[in-house]
Amino acid sequence: MLKYILKRLLMMIPVILCVAILVFTIIYFTPGDAAQVVAGQGTPAEKLDELRESMGLNDPYFVQLGRYLHQVFVKLDLGTAMVNKTSITSDMQARFPYSMTLALIGIAFAICVGIPLGVYSALHQNKVGDRIAVVVSMLGVSVPHFWLALMLILLFSVKLGWLPAYGVGGIAYWIMPIIANCVGGMATTARQTRSSMLEVIHCDYIVTARSKGLKQSQIILRHMLPNALIPIITVTGMNFGGMLGGGLIIEQIFTIPGVGFYLTKGITQRDYYAVMGGVILLSVAFSVIMLATDLIQAFVDPRIKAQYAGDVKRRRKPHAREA
């Protein structure tokens, strides 16, 4: 198993390299002048030419690519933002914790609320409780984040004055952003859990478990849930990745200085280096999340673990009674 983990970690490197190359290439070929962005509007043409030369923008593609890759992976420096002239690495260091917190707590809620809801739904399929839960899930998936965020602000900040409308600080500042962010994830998880559980409920080994005379709670926790979790883990992993990069609307509305907001600012300002740095960082984060997802799955499902571990434990000792 350890070998597998190491192997996957090593495999992450070419993935991230490819992402970096791809991002760089796309931005390289996108029409638009990086020198113009750095210098700002209204700079005469000769000054732009000088700047282009000094930024190395006239070098051939591969030279620029090599330079960038060297800078990012060897010197571990994501560069300097073109508009603000700040170090992108330190910008990211300041912002990543916010995005991460938002995403982590969001996914924790999604799991803690979504899974029990889905289990309940599946066990009481087509009864009143299930129907209500299904409608609530659908609402959760359909409601747009920003609308929900604004409605929460109107209710809790403006009308009731309980919570601050924006900013960062203590727990009070996080309540509304997290709720707005995780409702979608909660609903998706609940739906996925429900359908996964419904599949499992009709499996033969559940009949075996019932015939053993186990209590219903035991059956759910030890037999149904571990099997139902396998697709849920995958979905949750992807949800988390989505929450990480996609919390940007929430970040913008609540002025939480996170990576998503930084990235979109970079995009609208055409700050190429900031965008490249942000994308690379997000891709690293996403790769790690996917790896974690796979490992958790292997932990839960021994069949997958066996696949990964690569060795099939068959006893080689001869035994007369064994098939």
Partner: peptide, 24 residues
Amino acid sequence: MHDIRGNRVTMIFQDPMTALNPVM
């Protein structure tokens, strides 16, 4: 019935391939 099943009355099933919990 919880007391009876598995204790006084038990069952062997038809398809052994799916009768066991794969993750236990």
